[in-house]
Nucleic acid binder design. Sequence first.
DNA 1: ATGGTTGTGTTACAA
Length: 256
Amino acid sequence: MIIASWNVNSIRARLPRVSEWLTDFAPDVVMLQELKCITENFPYLEIEDLGYHVAVHGQKSYNGVAILSKFPIEDILTELPGDEGDEQARYIEATIKGVRVGGLYLPNGNPLPGPKFDYKLKWMDRLIGRAKYLLAREEVFVLGGDYNCCPKDEDCYDPHRLSGDALMQPETRDRYYSLLNLGLTDAFRHFFPSGHNYTYWDYQRGAWQKDNGLRIDHLLLSPQAADILKKCDIDRVPRSKERASDHTPIWCDLAL
DNA sequence: ATGGTTGTGTTACAA
C-alpha cells in the first residue's frame, strides 16, 4: 500500500497537477495539505472520477487538509485534540484498510518570537500527545504531512541563512525529536540516513533550479508500520512542472 | 543588492 503526503498549495489552483500525479503515480492513499478552500469547494467530482474516496477538512483562504484513498475511509477525525478553541483546519485522521492515517499541516510559526511561534510549539505538544495515544493502541499508523520542521542542518540548503527561521529553531526540533523518541520512524531517513534531500523549494530566487530546498514534509511510522515498511522516497517530478506547488510529494510503501 | 513568487481574495497577508 503506497501512502503519500503532498502540500499542494491550493487544491483548486493545483487540480491539473494533482490529477496527473494521481493518474501517473497511482498512490493508494494521499494526505493533502494547504487546500486553501472551504470543504464545500473541494473538487470532489474530479478526484472521485479518478477512483478515490475523499475526506476533507477545509477552511477559507488558508490551511485545509484532506485524505484521498482508493479504499473506503472510516472513522474520520478532523480535529487534533487538546485545544477546543483552535479553529485552524490543520489535521485529519482516518482508518483505511485497518491503517490509521493522520494528515497534518503543522503551523509555520514565523515570525518569532511571537504568538505564531507560540501556537506552533503548543500545536506540536498536542501532536506529541496524539502520537502517545495512537502508540498505546499498538497498531499500524502513519503521521504524515508538512511538519514545517527541518530536523537537521543537512535538511536545509543554507542553515546559516535560515538560522532565524521557525523551521530551524531548537524548540521546533526538540519537539520533532520527541516524536521520534516515542518510537516513531522517519520513513525517509530509514532508507537515506543522511544527505540533502528536499521536499520544498521556495518560489523565489530560482530556488528549484539551484536545488535550494528544505526537507520539511515527513512520514512518521508507528513500530507496527515500520515493521512492514518496504520503501520510501521523494518524487521530485511534480515540482518540476509548470504551475507547480512549492512542495513535492513524499511516499512510502507498506507491505499490506 | 534587504530584492524576489504564488495564492487567496481584495490590494493585505501567509508562506
